[in-house]
């Protein structure tokens, strides 16, 4: 039996991954100095780890179709994600109760602006269940009706995945309801990515008139939350 056979692959992995306890690590160091075979096995394990890391240093960015709406960030939308999280904090209720000063100076103004805005809503439809779709439309109607007198409440409904059926003119059971809401300034957005996926499967997608598109539902959600809108997933 060779000396290095005392060490299992699990042990070599743990050594390379920094998971061995100091005592066993020292033992392996000493043994590898004496055994070229063991040393080679360790080198190969390290090399393998480096190879895997190297192979994913640069990964291809997702190919995003160009939507008609301008996006606010680069391919990964990091700034928007920061914004959505800021907005979550700002709209959570706590910040409006004397804690605004706890925010960094550059966000206080944005927070104050958010608090002065009327309550605007983004409703997000992901389900293809007609009842869920109807629930979203009913909720939008309720939100319009419950606005304070003189308050101009803005509402957007964004649909993606199976929820896109809501906005497909040949599929939706609610074209009339959508039209009625549009007349009340409710704006409907379809996820361009979801449309692209359907089209890749050979499905022709025709949207209800006056439906707008954004690249992804997330882009829309993040942008509106950054603007201080309330977000509800239906």
């Amino acid at each position: 039996m060779k000396k290095d056979e005392h060490f299992s692959e699990e042990q070599l992995n743990a050594f390379v991954d920094g998971e061995l306890d100091p005592e066993e690590k020292s033992r392996l160091y000493n043994e590898s100095a004496k055994s070229p075979e063991l040393d080679m096995r360790l080198c190969q394990t390290r090399k393998l780890k480096e190879l895997v890391r190297h192979a994913y240093d640069d990964v291809p960015a997702p190919q995003r179709p160009r939507g008609p709406t301008l996006r606010r960030s680069g391919p990964f939308g990091r700034a928007l994600v920061a914004g959505v999280l800021l907005a979550i904090g700002a709209t959570s209720g706590y910040l409006g109760h004397g804690l605004i000063s706890a925010e960094p100076a550059n966000t206080s103004a944005a927070t104050a602006q958010v608090l002065e805005q009327p309550e605007n809503y983004l409703l997000h439809v992901v389900s293809g269940d007609p009842e869920q779709m109807y629930s979203a439309l009913s909720h939008a109607k309720f939100l319009l009706d419950s606005a304070d007198e003189g308050e101009i409440r803005r509402i957007e409904i964004v649909a993606n995945e199976r929820g896109l059926d809501l906005l497909r003119s040949d599929v939706t059971p609610y074209a009339e309801e959508i039209r009625a809401l549009q007349k009340n300034n409710v704006v409907f957005y379809a996820c361009a990515r979801s449309i692209q996926r359907l089209e890749e499967k050979g499905v022709e997608v025709v949207l209800v008139p006056d439906t707008r598109q954004d690249y992804t539902a997330l882009d829309r959600v993040v942008m509106r939350m950054q603007d201080g809108w309330k977000y509800e997933k239906i």
Binding site: D4, E5, H6, F7, S8, E9, E10, Q11, A14, G18, E19, L20, D21, P22, E23, E24, M40, R41, Q44, K47, L48, L51, V52
Partner: peptide, 22 residues
């Protein structure tokens, strides 16, 4: 991965309990 990426023998070695630091 070693089989695909590194030309080494992968004969199984006797298993031994490994103490992890975490």
């Amino acid at each position: 991965l070693k089989e695909h990426l590194i030309d080494v023998g992968t004969a199984a070695t006797p298993r031994r309990s490994t103490t992890l630091k975490r």
